[in-house]
Design a binder for these strands. Structure first.
Length: 423
RNA sequence: GGAGAGAUGGCAGAGUGGUCGAUUGCGGCGGUCUUGAAAACCGUUGAGGUGUAACAGCCUCCGGGGGUUCGAAUCCCUCUCUCUCCGCCA
C-alpha cells in the first residue's frame, strides 16, 4: 500500500505518476480522498462521544461510592444515549475505513522517477550489456536436447510422477542443481547476507504482506485444508519474518539470503516460453532480501544489481540489465531491474533475476518499521532479488558452454561439481 | 488425534468489575558519583489514530472476534495459537 499522505498532499501528482504505469487512478484517488475525510470526521465524532461516555462512567462510579444512587440513575440515561450514538458512529466509521482500506489495496506502488513510461516489455530500457556472445559449433543444441543427451534432466519422468513443469534432475544434472545452490549461498553469505531456511508454505497474512494477495491469487498453489499457500518465491516467508516488528535504526540494513523451492501455477503459458527449463511449476531459487532505511534503499538496489551482475560474470554468461517500464513494472514495485542472460541456442534473452525496491509498499502492509534516532517510528523500505533462479541459468550454461566434447563448466562452479566439464 | 493448562508492555511476571495503558523486576535510554568503567542511587522508557506550527488534549489497543455492565485486562461465549502429558511419526 502506498502512504495515504501522498494522496492528501498532492492527489494530482499521484495520478500523474500512475500514468507512467498506464494506470488511470483518478477515480480511485478521488474516492479515496473523500473516504479519508469521511473516516476522519467519523473518527472525531466517535472519539468525542466516547470521551463523554468515559467521563460519565467515572462520575457514576463516584456517585455510587458516596451513596448518591438517585443521581447516578439520572446519569445512566445519558449514558445509554451515548452508547446508542457510539454504536452508530462506529458502524459508519467501519464502513468508511473498510472501503478505504479496500481501495488502497487496489493501488499499485508509485513508480520511481527513473521508471520509463511504456506499455510492455518492448518499452523496457537496456542499461548495460556484458560478456561476449558465444559462437556455437555447427550442430549445437538447445538445452532440452543437451539435457537428454547427457542424461541431466528427465522431463518425461517428471510429467509421469507429477505433471508438466515438474522436471526430475538426474546424475550430473542433479549435482549441478546442488552446486549452483551452494555457490549462490556461499557468495551471498560472503556479501554479508545471513542465510535463512524458511517454510515453503505461508499463511494468508504473509501472502498479503508481500503483495501476493489479493493481487496475484491465481499465481500460487493453495492448500485448502490448512488455508496455506505454497510459496512462489522465498521473498514471501523471508520478508514476513519481520512482519509486525519495529527494528532499531542501527539494526538496518537487514540482509537475508535464502534457498528455496518455488511453486508457480503459471496458468495460461504455452509454446516456446515453456519449452524445457524456460518456465516451470516448481523450480529452485536463491533469493536476497534487504530491509533498509528509506534514505538508503536506492543505494541498496544498485548494490544488489551489482552483486547479481558479479554472479553472472563468475558464471561466464553474457547478460544485460534491463530497467522495467511502467507497464511491465510489478504491482508492488517502485523500480525494478531485470537481469537477462543470453541463451545462445535458443537465440533469446532469458530473465534470470528481477531486483526490486518496494519502498514502503510491503512494509506498510506488514507494519515493518524502525525506530529512528530522533522522531517517530517510520516504515522501512524492503527490496529483493533473485540471486539466482536456477532453471534458466542451467539452460544458458548448457547452451552457451557446449562443444563437441561436452559442456565446460565455469571456473567458479568447478569446485562444487568436482570436475571441469559435463560429458 | 485425546486430556489438561495458559495467552498481559523488549523480556520476566503481578493484576478477578471503578483514575489500570496497567504494580514490580530485568533490559534500554538519560543523569549523579568515578581518572575511566563496574556497582549504587535518581529519572525516563509500548503501539496506532485524531489533533497541533510544535506541545497539550482526546480516542483505541492487556492473543482475535462477539456479549454482559453506567463502567472489563478482570465476568460470559467463540475462534486462534502456545505449553504439558498420551497416541502417531521423519
Amino acid at each position: 500500500m502506498i502512504d495515504l499522505q501522498h494522496i492528501r498532499d498532492d492527489s494530482q501528482g499521484v495520478i500523474r505518476r500512475y500514468a507512467v504505469r498506464q494506470f488511470d487512478a483518478s477515480d480511485l484517488v478521488h474516492r479515496i480522498k473523500e473516504l479519508d475525510i469521511e473516516r476522519r470526521q467519523a473518527q472525531k465524532q466517535l472519539d468525542d462521544t466516547l470521551a463523554e461516555a468515559n467521563a460519565l462512567a467515572r462520575s457514576i462510579g463516584e456517585l455510587f461510592k458516596s451513596g448518591k444512587g438517585q443521581e447516578a440513575a439520572t446519569l445512566k440515561e445519558r449514558s445509554g444515549e451515548l452508547k446508542q450514538l457510539s454504536k452508530a458512529l462506529q458502524t459508519s466509521l467501519d464502513a468508511a475505513a473498510g472501503e478505504l482500506d479496500e481501495l488502497m489495496t487496489r493501488l499499485p506502488m508509485l513508480p520511481h522517477p527513473l521508471v520509463p513510461p511504456g506499455n510492455s516489455e518492448a518499452d523496457n530500457v537496456v542499461i548495460r550489456e556484458e560478456g561476449s556472445m558465444p559462437k556455437l559449433h555447427p550442430g549445437a543444441m538447445p538445452h532440452w536436447e543437451l539435457a537428454k543427451k547427457h542424461r541431466l534432466i528427465d522431463f518425461e519422468a517428471g510429467t509421469k510422477v507429477t505433471g508438466a513443469g515438474f522436471p526430475v534432475y538426474t546424475g550430473q544434472g542433479a549435482r549441478l542443481q546442488r552446486a549452483l545452490i551452494s555457490f549462490f549461498l556461499d557468495e551471498a553469505t560472503r556479501a554479508g547476507y545471513t542465510e535463512v531456511q524458511p517454510p515453503l508454505m505461508v499463511n494468508p497474512a504473509s501472502a498479503f504482506g508481500t503483495g501476493q494477495l489479493p493481487d496475484k491469487d491465481g499465481l500460487m498453489y493453495h492448500v485448502p485444508a490448512e488455508d496455506l499457500y505454497l510459496i512462489p518465491t522465498s521473498e514471501v516467508p523471508v520478508t514476513n519474518i519481520l512482519r509486525d516488528t519495529i527494528l532499531e535504526e542501527k539494526e538496518l540494513p537487514v540482509k537475508y539470503t535464502a534457498y528455496s523451492v518455488c511453486f508457480r501455477r503459471e496458468a495460461g503459458s504455452y509454446g516456446k516460453d515453456v519449452r524445457g527449463l524456460n518456465r516451470l511449476h516448481q523450480f529452485d531459487k536463491v533469493e536476497i532480501v534487504q530491509v533498509c532505511h528509506p534514505g538508503k534503499s536506492y543505494a541498496a538496489l544498485d548494490e544488489m544489481v551489482a552483486y547479481v551482475a558479479s554472479l553472472l560474470e563468475k558464471l561466464e554468461l553474457p547478460f544485460r540489465i534491463v530497467r522495467l517500464c511502467g507497464g511491465d513494472l510489478g504491482f508492488a514495485s517502485a523500480l525494478t531491474y531485470d537481469m537477462e542472460v543470453y541463451s545462445a541456442a535458443q537465440e533469446r534473452w532469458l530473465e534470470v533475476s528481477s531486483i526490486s525496491n518496494f519502498e514502503t509498499y510491503q512494509s506498510q502492509r506488514m507494519k515493518l518499521r524502525f525506530r529512528p534516532e530522533k522522531g517517530k517510528n517510520q516504515l522501512a523500505h524492503t527490496l529483493n532479488g533473485s540471486a539466482l533462479a536456477l532453471p534458466r541459468i542451467v539452460a544458458a550454461l548448457l547452451e552457451n558452454h557446449q562443444s563437441d566434447s561436452g559442456i565446460s563448466l565455469p571456473k567458479a562452479l568447478q569446485p562444487y561439481m568436482g570436475s571441469e566439464s559435463i560429458r
